[in-house]
């Protein structure tokens, strides 16, 4: 296969279809950006759910020296108090079998370090300042009232939190955003598919003489399709690279510079998640270019 002929063909093809190629690039750019944002939103939801969200419904935080909860007396929770609390939880008819998990100060501290991994706060906080807690899984997540009232106020209990109560609306909003972004991305990707197949049809028409002669002298299908394929792949790659850049910029300015500083309560998507998303975007972009190109060239370049 003579690469230089193919490359010169590619250059000519791109020049000839410049406006269509730009249209394809822009469409792929925008649609992949939306798609990437949706991927990140999904990651974000997972991060916010953290280690516990899918396993438990209620968190019971225990007293430290500094906590001012109803059951606290300015002292650390004692072992007896802990045993008593655990017994109450386990004996409740609403608790799922094996549904009680204890989180020690050490585990809490690890989690804290993860959340604030690049913040100066970490160095000022010690393991001792962390709160021990019980995490409880319910048989029926809707029936939390009984257990909450049974545990709240017990000696040694600082606060009782129902995680879902205030996270669920947030997740609903995030899911809505994600679905919206995916739908918009899908619509744009359909437009991109049509643009690609249209571009190829025009290009095949513009090159019908060459193609006719190629078929006549016995050029292989692949050889005839290759310039079209390369054109589409190049357009998709440019679009994908622009989309990846957009996503990085978005993550950098919106998440890393702002959200992460302001809301430390949970982990935010970062470089690792963004990198993963951009990889998926590039793959999707390439598939989107290659598949319709093969289908269209087969249709218009029949042997």
């Amino acid at each position: 296969m003579r690469l230089n002929y193919i490359l010169s063909d590619l250059g000519i093809g791109l020049k000839r279809n410049l406006s269509m190629t730009i249209a394809v690039v822009v469409t792929i750019w925008v649609s992949l950006s939306l798609f990437g944002s949706a991927l990140l939103a999904r990651e974000q939801v997972d991060l916010m759910k953290g280690n516990w969200y899918d396993k438990i419904q209620i968190s019971i935080f225990l007293c430290t020296k500094d906590s001012g909860g109803r059951g606290c007396s300015g002292a650390e929770v004692t072992t007896e108090q802990k045993n008593r609390i655990k017994q109450v939880i386990e004996s409740s008819p609403d608790t799922a079998p094996d549904g009680v998990f204890g989180e020690t100060k050490k585990e809490a501290f690890e989690q804290f370090k993860k959340l604030y991994k690049d913040s100066p706060i970490v160095s000022t906080v010690t393991e001792d300042q962390m709160q021990e807690s019980f995490r409880v899984k319910l048989k029926d997540p809707q029936r939390y009232q009984n257990l909450v009232s049974a545990v709240a106020g017990l000696p040694g209990v600082d606060t009782v939190q129902d995680l879902r109560q205030y996270l669920d609306p947030l997740f609903k909003a995030l899911n809505g955003l994600q679905v919206g972004a995916l739908v918009a991305a899908a619509l744009l990707l359909v437009a991109a598919l049509m643009q690609i197949s249209n571009t190829i049809r025009l290009a095949a028409y513009a090159r019908r003489r060459e193609i006719g002669i190629m078929r006549l002298v016995g050029a292989s299908n692949f050889y005839i399709q290759l310039p079209f394929l390369l054109e589409a792949v190049l357009a998709a790659l440019i679009g994908a690279v622009l989309a990846c850049g957009t996503l990085w910029i978005g993550v950098y300015f919106v998440v890393m510079q702002r959200a992460q500083e302001t809301f430390r309560v949970w982990q935010w998507v970062g470089a690792a998640e963004t990198f993963q998303a951009t990889l998926i975007m590039v793959v999707v972009g390439l598939i989107l270019a290659v598949v319709p190109t093969f289908l269209t060239t087969r249709k218009y370049l029949k042997v």
Partner: peptide
């Protein structure tokens, strides 16, 4: 394509590029 490489073709309208 392989088969066509064994056949040369000439037309009334030349079909040159």
């Amino acid at each position: 394509p392989q088969m066509r490489r064994q056949i040369g073709t000439v037309f009334q309208d030349f079909r040159l590029l």
